[in-house]
């Protein structure tokens, strides 16, 4: 925590006088972009994302770290953002569902697979499922269905789209391996070209 000061909470209120609140400035790198915000020490990461930055793709369901709906990547590792304080993330890198597609809008292979396999119904758990799967697949690029069941067990789905979810994760793993193989081959070819 760098400094603590008595400052009015930034620009959230028009007609009513703004109360002085103990807030702390923090810097979050969200999806590659740096944001400096004033937060109360009790502000959770999910609140900072949703309320302070207006990024509502990350959902809040249980608020107890029990359901995984608020899963984001913090320095690449999945965390439940409802039980992490924003001040603990000062200077760190956060990846959310909004930052997953390519800049041209092409969905991430997991996003596409979730649609293809109907791995969602109401969709409220879905951003958390997908962010969780991103980290899971990085660590388990060739998962079995049982590994997926265990590796995704922290993300609950009340609509119970579980079968679609595990099929989507398995399929996305395949797609991602194939594209890594292609780009790997391309890199090799390029290297070979440079050498010759």
């Amino acid at each position: 925590m760098s400094q603590v000061s008595e400052v009015p909470e930034s620009g959230r209120s028009g007609s009513t006088p703004v109360p002085p609140t103990l807030t702390v400035p923090i810097q979050l790198r969200v999806n590659g972009q740096i944001h400096t915000i004033q937060v109360e020490p009790r502000t959770t990461l999910v609140d900072a994302l949703r309320t302070h930055l207006g990024m509502t793709g990350t959902k809040l369901v249980c608020g107890q770290g029990a359901c995984g709906a608020c899963t984001v990547l913090l320095d690449g590792e999945r965390v439940t953002a409802c039980i992490i304080l924003a001040i603990m993330c000062d200077g760190r890198e956060v990846k959310t569902i909004e930052g997953l597609a390519l800049p041209d809008g092409t969905p991430h292979p997991l996003q596409a697979a979730f649609v293809r396999h109907d791995a969602l119904q109401c969709g409220f758990c879905t951003p958390g499922q997908i962010m969780s799967a991103v980290a899971f697949l990085r660590d388990h690029p060739e998962p079995t269905i049982d590994e997926i069941r265990a590796g995704m067990a922290g993300n609950l789905c009340r609509c119970a789209a579980y079968i679609g979810i595990r099929e989507a994760v398995a399929d996305a793993a395949k797609q991602m391996r194939a594209s890594t193989a292609t780009s790997g081959a391309a890199t090799l070819a390029q290297d070979a070209g440079e050498m010759s």
């Binding site: 509502t56 809040l60 909004e98 996003q111 596409a112 293809r116």
Partner: peptide, 24 residues
């Protein structure tokens, strides 16, 4: 047919009542 609201939901673009925010 894949659900037509699927893309909005997997990208976090679907705005639920809980997500709506207004100035002030």
């Amino acid at each position: 047919l894949p659900r037509i609201d699927g893309l909005a939901k997997v990208t976090g673009q679907a705005i639920y009542s809980f997500d709506h925010a207004l100035p002030d």
